[in-house]
Nucleic acid binder design. Sequence first.
DNA 1: TCTGGGGTCCTAGGACCC
DNA 2: TCTGGGGTCCTAGGACCC
Length: 501
Amino acid sequence: MPYGSIDGVRSAPTILHLDMDAFYAAAEQAAKPSLRGKPVVVGGIGTRGVVATASYEARRFGVHSAMPVAQARRLCPNAAYLMPRFALYRSVSEQVMELLGRLSPLVEPLSLDEAFVDLEAGGVADDSVSARRAGERLRVDIRAVTGLTGSVGLAGSKMLAKIASEQAKPDGLVLIEPGTERELLGPMPVRILPGVGPATGEHLRRAGMTTVADLAEAGEDELVRLLGKAHGVSLYQMALGHDDRPVVAERDAKSVSVEDTFEVDLHDRVRVRNEVVRLSDRCVQRLRAAGRSGRTVVLKVRRYDFSTLTRSETLRGPTDDPTVVREAAGRLLESVDTTGGVRLLGVGVTGLADFTQEDLFAQAAGERAEAAEEAEDSEAGEAGKAGGAGGGGEPVAPVPEPPPERRWLAGQDVRHSVYGAGWVQGSGVGRVTVRFEEPTSPPGRVRTFKVDDPDLVPSDPLPLVRAAGDQVGSSPASRPKSPSEAAASEEAASGEAISSP
DNA sequence: TCTGGGGTCCTAGGACCC
DNA sequence: TCTGGGGTCCTAGGACCC
């Protein structure tokens, strides 16, 4: 047993959990001076979008994550509604993770804005005083480097560190002294425990358990009976404040998937097939970019009534061949009834193996032969019907991308040859409204252009913080661009069609 | 109010093998 | 002639997290 660990909790609060405050919205406010102190909602842009992050100003109106944007607009019509800009969030995230890496080799990112750090393993803390010092300094560094605030939780276990950071929000630090966890947890609602969501919470409530103390009192057997083996056992341990899960630095992804919700339900079967082909290709692109291959292809279909089903097929060996994935997904689609309309389609690959540059042609040919054989074996009469993407032996025709329609999206960075850097505030009826300001400028003015004004081009995010000493700033957004770099990235950005189903 | 997109883990039944 | 138990793989669905 590692020293200092009793009962599934360390004797010193040396596990740190960092959670950036309203991350996406805060990054947008940092990038757009006119939005500071104002309600900002980042989320899906279409009519079926949901809120990814609401700024604290917007939360006062009742807006929160996962809420349909349509509902958020009713609650808070005056907020700025912006599309997410993951390139920006990723570059800020890299800066933050770099700071965490200075504290310890054991950093476990949970998402772009959240991570666990094992301070003891990094040798920067071995008791409450040193842990608090490290946490406070981290918060100062994060603000200096990114211009954003993060909240820090410190405790003897992951679970408690996470609960602590939640309590610290926004812009705070909470340290839970080992030994105090049970009295602290006892009165809290069961929903604060990781793994207790709406369904489990309701289940427990019907059984008369609303607080963590209720769970500890119920006992392990009762929880297992109620929730099943794995869930029951782990929940009981959590309720006692026991959690000895280690901080794990890097974990390989176990699946890769892409999905699209359509603005309007799809009814045309040919269109559905084409979308499955496009999703297959996107999925394979991501798979290849990760240097992986996978053995099981999964098709996901959400129907008009929100009922969701998945179909999967396991191949003989791992693949990263777009044709193989297209054809498998196509076959799976043939087994799904889509009458009534399709709201969402998804294609994923699981059973990932490290990529090996094997004989992909042989692989593809083998799978095709197999498929053809199956088609012949089962229903000879069906063969004629299975045209298009899901068909048997014929090669799959490439599906053309939709025309490169130029849509100006709210929040998007742009540059005007006369007025300089700005962002799209809105567009419609052939016009686009741009506010000209930058992260380090005062709030700027608005101007309106025709949507096809040649002087207006998309551009990349600018650094949120003026590069000072620039020891940390090695990521794209934190580094000033040379004019040539800027021009090159502008071109790249405008060449990329905005994907909208 | 009308529900995103990317993941993880667990359960349960059936096939198949020993 | 009727009846085993265990282990692994595959498939489908569901809960949960950010």
